[in-house]
Design a binder for these strands. Structure first.
Lengths: 255, 255
DNA sequence: AAGCGTTATTCCATATGATGGAAAGTACGG
DNA sequence: CCGTACTTTCCATCATATGGAATAACGCTT
C-alpha cells in the first residue's frame, strides 16, 4: 500500500445515514426496514435506530405500515438551494450586461439576517481598481443601498426591532444613525423607486440599488452599481432599475 | 414530572447534524465555522468534524474561504420528494373522475425497480368489494398493465436484462412467460396506445392502463382501471387514455 | 381462535467510535 | 514581523453508538 494520502475517516453513523438517504432516493416507493437493512448491509436494529433518530427531523418519513421514504424537510431544504442557484444563474448575464453598459462594478446582494451579503460581483474594466466589494463580504442593511430595500419591505415594527438590535451603528460619518433619517430615506426610496448608498458603508464609494423579486413577489435580492464617489452619476439609476426588473421578470415576477 | 410518554432519545451526532442543517437553512449566505459553532452552541472542533464528515455526501458544501452552505445533494433529494407529491396531487382528482365515470377502481402506479407500486387508489362504489389492489402493494412489471408501459419504454437490452433478472416468473397461468410473448404484447401496446392485464397478475382481475408523462416527456406513472373479469370492457380504454393524457398535460407534458 | 413464521422493536452489556480540549497551523491586519 | 483570531489536527478518554438477543407485533393459514 503506497497510498500517499488516505481519505480522512468520516463519522460512521453519519456515513450510514447518508447511505440510507441514497438508498431511499433510488426507490420510487416506501421501503420496508428489512429491505433497507439488507440493501445497506447493516443489522436491522441499527438501521431501525438510525431511521427513527432522523424521522423527527423530517428528513425521512415513516409511514403507518412501517415503511420509510424521503421526507418533506428535504423538499424545504432543496428549495433553499434551488432558490440560491436560480437567482444567481438568472441574474449573472444581466449583471454582466449592466457592467458592460456602465463600465462600473455590479453586485448581487442577498439578505442574511441583519446584513446584506454580496454573492456575485462583476469584475474587469476600470471599476475593479477602486471599489472593493468582495464576494462574501457583508454589510449592515441600513448602510447599503440594497439593504435599504429590505428595510423598506419590513413592517414598521420589524424596522423598529432592527433599529433596536443594531443601534443603527454607523460605518462612516455619512451613515444614517437615527430612525427619523432612515424613515425619510425610505420614503424617498418609495417615491423614486431606487436606493442609494452615499458613502454610508465605505468612504469614497457610492451605490445605486434596485430590487429583485421572484414569482411570488417576494424581495429576494438586490442589484447594485458601485462607483467611486467622484464618478457617481444618478442618471444611471433607470438602467439599474431596468436591469432589476428584467431579472425579476426572468424569475417569474409579474407586476 | 408526570409526562406520560418520554420522547425516545435520538442519536446525538445525528441530532447535531440536523441542527447544523437547520442553522444553515436560516442563512441566505455561506456561514463561517466559528459562527456556526456559536449558533449551534457546540465546540468548533466538533462542528468542524461533523461538517467535514458530511461534505463528501453533498448535503453540505464547503467553500474556499472555509464557509459552509447547504449542498446540491439536497436539491436532488428535494426534487425526488417534489416529484412524488406532484404526481399524486395532480392525478388524484382525475382518478376520482374516472372512477365516477366508470364505477370501477382506479389505481395510480409508479415504477420501483422491477416492480409497479400502487401509490393511490380510488375506493367506494361496487368495485371495492372485489378488486384488491392495496396502496403500497407491488407487482412485477410484466404481469401488470401499467408495468408493460415501463417495459415498452426500455431499450431492447434493458428489456433483455429485466427478463434475465426476473425470469418472467408468472403470477397466474395467464402471465406472459416468454420474451417472444412479451415483445408481441408490447408491439400491440404501441399500436393500440393502451395496455392490458388479462388476469396475468391476479385471477379474476383485468386492467386497462395508460401512461402518465411529465414536462420532460419521461414516463413517471401509470393510471389503470381494474375490474373483475366478468365486467371487463375494452370500450373503456379511450376514457383511460384520455384521463392519462389530461394528467400528463397537467404535469406539463407537451406532445 | 390458535399456531407459525416473519418482521419490527426494545433492551442492554460493551467496546469502539465520537468527543472536545489542547496544540499546531493558517490567515489577516497593523 | 508580531499578535490575534480562526481553522485544523491530534489524541486520551469515556460516553455513546452498537448489534445480538429477547420480546412484541403482524399477517397468513388452518
Amino acid at each position: 500500500m503506497n497510498a500517499p494520502y488516505e481519505k480522512p475517516a468520516g463519522i460512521q453513523v453519519i456515513d450510514r445515514l447518508v447511505r440510507l438517504l441514497d438508498l431511499l432516493s433510488k426507490h420510487n416507493a416506501p421501503v420496508a426496514l428489512r429491505d433497507l437493512a439488507a440493501q445497506a448491509e447493516l443489522p436491522p436494529s441499527t438501521v431501525h435506530r438510525i431511521l427513527n433518530a432522523v424521522v423527527p427531523s423530517g428528513l425521512i418519513e415513516r409511514l403507518d405500515g412501517g415503511h420509510y421514504q424521503l421526507g418533506l424537510r428535504l423538499l424545504e431544504l432543496g428549495a433553499k438551494v434551488k432558490e440560491r442557484l436560480t437567482v444567481r444563474d438568472v441574474a449573472l448575464p444581466y449583471l454582466q450586461k449592466l457592467h458592460d453598459a456602465t463600465g462600473e462594478s455590479v453586485n448581487l446582494g442577498v439578505r442574511d439576517g441583519d446584513e446584506i451579503v454580496y454573492i456575485e460581483r462583476t469584475s474587469g474594466g476600470r471599476s475593479s481598481v477602486r471599489v472593493v466589494h468582495i464576494v462574501g463580504s457583508r454589510a449592515p442593511l441600513h448602510t447599503t443601498a440594497t439593504g435599504k430595500w429590505f428595510l423598506a419591505e419590513m413592517s414598521p415594527s420589524e424596522r423598529a426591532a432592527y433599529c433596536a438590535r443594531t443601534g443603527l451603528a454607523p460605518q462612516t460619518p455619512h451613515s444614517l444613525t437615527t430612525r427619523e433619517a432612515l424613515e425619510a430615506e425610505l420614503a424617498e426610496l418609495a417615491q423614486e423607486g431606487v436606493a442609494y448608498d452615499m458613502e454610508e458603508q465605505e468612504l469614497g464609494v457610492r451605490c445605486i440599488a434596485a430590487p429583485i423579486r421572484d414569482e411570488t413577489g417576494a424581495l429576494v435580492a438586490g442589484i447594485s452599481l458601485s462607483t467611486p464617489a467622484e464618478r457617481f452619476d444618478r442618471s444611471k439609476a433607470p438602467l439599474v432599475q431596468a436591469t432589476a426588473q428584467a431579472i425579476s421578470r426572468a424569475l417569474g415576477y409579474r407586476q
